[in-house]
């Protein structure tokens, strides 16, 4: 990796760590000056750009704290006393979740704990045996899988979702392509969805969910198949949506980002949780 490439990657990684544009420019300029003065290759001087960016971000967070965020707004999603049984097995028992505008909630739990079931109930797609879900605003829903047509092009999927949202064809394509570009994906012309890789298909799934500026985003493990960079980009999006005042609920089994969400709903049954 030459120094220019290293510096470019460093800038991307710093942005993924939520550093503002000024801070990114400053850190990259300092690193570039050091490389110029020392004449060293970047990898030898600083290590990998990912590692260096993480260290810089951690250092800045320790010194200045995290940037101030707008206060959460009104309640967008409220699930109260949600209980769901399949035959005699109780999957969810009196689960509560309240998410305000500008908040991110993570739903975690072991396999079979009912995470996707809970999200489908929150989306209004499943009827709970007890409890009620109240929604304020427009909903965007990203299912875990099977949310796209195999034989349509990505542009056509954008048009399909856009028409439902009241957008015309060109606007739908523009929004879809912009969302794809933000996830480091440029849909190739003429490539049907069935020919996309698993990770790219999930990007499409995610872009479709976010079209039409929903107030509440329900995301069911939307990052499956993402590479590391895209995974970090995904969380960048989550935080951006949060800062724009949206309420975001993410089903996840990856715990590395839980310190950066506003609340965690653990659906692991009490007995399993105690045993773990």
């Amino acid at each position: 990796m030459d120094n220019d490439r290293w510096l470019w990657t460093l800038g991307q990684e710093l942005a993924r760590h939520q550093l503002g544009p000024d801070a990114v420019r400053h850190v990259v300029a300092e690193a570039a000056a050091h490389l110029r003065d020392s004449g060293q290759p970047a990898l030898r001087a600083f290590g990998t750009p990912e590692g260096y960016a993480a260290a810089v971000a951690e250092s800045l967070a320790a010194r200045y704290g995290r940037p101030a965020r707008p206060a959460p707004g009104r309640v967008r999603l409220s699930a109260r006393g949600i209980t769901k049984r399949y035959r005699r097995r109780t999957i969810l028992r009196s689960v509560d979740l309240t998410v305000r505008a500008g908040e991110v909630a993570a739903v975690v739990g072991a396999n079979g704990a009912g995470k996707s079931t809970f999200l489908r109930i929150c989306a209004g797609l499943l009827t709970p045996d007890a409890g009620e879900v109240m929604l304020d605003g427009r909903l965007g829903y990203c299912p875990q899988d099977a949310g796209t047509y195999d034989f349509l092009l990505p542009d056509e999927q954008f048009v399909l979702i856009g028409a439902g949202r009241g957008l015309d064809r060109e606007r739908s394509k523009q929004i879809g392509r912009a969302g794809a570009a933000a996830l480091q994906w440029r849909p190739a012309a003429g490539v049907q969805t069935r020919h996309l890789s698993g990770g790219t298909r999930q990007k499409l799934n995610l872009v479709m969910a976010s079209m039409g500026e929903p107030d509440v985003l329900l995301l069911d493990e939307p990052y499956q198949g993402f590479d590391r960079g895209t995974y970090l980009d995904f969380w960048q999006h989550v935080w951006r949506w949060r800062d724009e005042g949206r309420a975001v609920v993410v089903v996840t089994h990856l715990l590395s980002q839980l310190d950066q969400v506003d609340q965690v709903l653990d659906l692991t049954p009490a007995s399993e949780g105690a045993a773990a």
Binding site: A123, L139, G147, I161, G164
Partner: peptide, 19 residues
């Protein structure tokens, strides 16, 4: 059958079932 798993998402994206 092809549309069945996708229709819930379309329904939440602004389509009525009759559409």
């Amino acid at each position: 059958g092809t549309s069945r798993p996708i229709e819930p998402r379309l329904r939440l994206s602004g389509y009525a079932s009759h559409h």
